[in-house]
């Protein structure tokens, strides 16, 4: 037996990366404050700032590949569609400033800026949350929440959901394969494919749902509903003071953004 591995549980959970090792809740506070600030400020400049902040953190935590791939899927359609929609709707409004032409189609500055504000605040929001999710194990977040008094049932529900998705995908693939092998068509026109849907989903669903009964019994045998105090094999690092400082700064950014938003809307009036 790997005794070293067994005894590694005596230490705090650690990943050896400054950002990744932040407490999941402080990390969430930081990400959410910045993300919401992006929504409140609603300016392309702040969105782009968060996007670059995301890139830096992605490089630092070695998740750049996954970060950029997920983000581009969101960003490209968003930038294109929002700007085109705005030009189509408001392009020819009188008093607008022409900026450039695309294949002879005149674009105007005001709707363009408006569309950039919208697209980038969403991209900014997505950037910080992506960074959060890419650097936080769900089990750590749930553990941190349990430490703050959230019931262990919540952890079970969340973590079991993630595992159930994996398990169910496996069985869906198996069933689809075997249906193909048995000659049930899974290609062809929409009606044919629709017909293949029901016999695939039905059995997976019914067996998974009926399995919950045994799962409940098994968890019950593992003292799941015991409420006389809970201990943990994995323990998170105690939160250092400087981490609270970063948290406080993030909250300040959020408050600042709200003040900014109120001021600018009053100015507009």
């Amino acid at each position: 037996m790997d005794k070293e591995f067994a005894y590694s549980f005596k230490d705090y959970v650690k990943y050896g990366n400054g950002f990744k090792d932040l407490n999941p809740i402080s990390k969430l506070t930081i990400s959410l404050c910045l993300g919401i600030a992006s929504c409140v400020i609603h300016r392309w400049q702040f969105g782009i700032f968060l996007f670059f902040l995301g890139i830096i953190l992605a490089l630092y935590t070695r998740v750049f590949d996954r970060f950029i791939r997920s983000l581009l899927v969101i960003a490209i359609p968003l930038l294109l569609l929002t700007s085109i929609m705005r030009q189509l709707q408001y392009g020819h409004v009188e008093g607008n400033t022409p900026i450039f032409k695309i294949f002879g189609w005149q674009w105007y500055k005001e709707p363009f800026i408006a569309s950039m504000d919208i697209a980038w605040y969403i991209i900014g929001f997505s950037s910080v949350l992506l960074i959060y999710f890419l650097n936080t194990e769900m089990k750590d977040l749930m553990l941190a929440l349990e430490n703050r008094g959230v019931t262990h049932v919540a952890s079970y529900i969340m973590l079991s959901s993630m595992q159930s998705i994996i398990d169910m995908r496996k069985s869906a693939n198996t069933i689809l394969e075997s249906q193909k092998a048995r000659g049930i068509e899974t290609d062809g026109n929409v009606i044919v494919r629709m017909k293949a849907f029901f016999p695939t989903l039905g059995p997976i669903l019914l067996s998974a749902m009926s399995g919950t009964e045994e799962k409940a019994i098994a968890m019950d045998a593992r003292a799941f509903s015991h409420d006389g105090g809970h201990t943990y094999l994995r323990v998170l690092r105690p939160i250092p003071v400087w981490e609270y400082v970063i948290d406080a700064l993030a909250v300040l950014v959020l408050i600042g953004s709200i003040v900014y938003a109120i001021m600018s809307s009053m100015h507009a009036l």
């Binding site: 067994a6 005894y7 549980f9 005596k10 262990h152 045998a221 593992r222 003292a223 799941f224 015991h226 006389g228 105090g229 809970h230 201990t231 943990y232 094999l233 323990v235």
Partner: peptide
């Protein structure tokens, strides 16, 4: 099960 019963960590290991 030991976590649910509240067994101290070192003993648990």
């Amino acid at each position: 099960g030991l976590e649910n019963l509240g067994v101290p960590k070192d003993e648990m290991i």
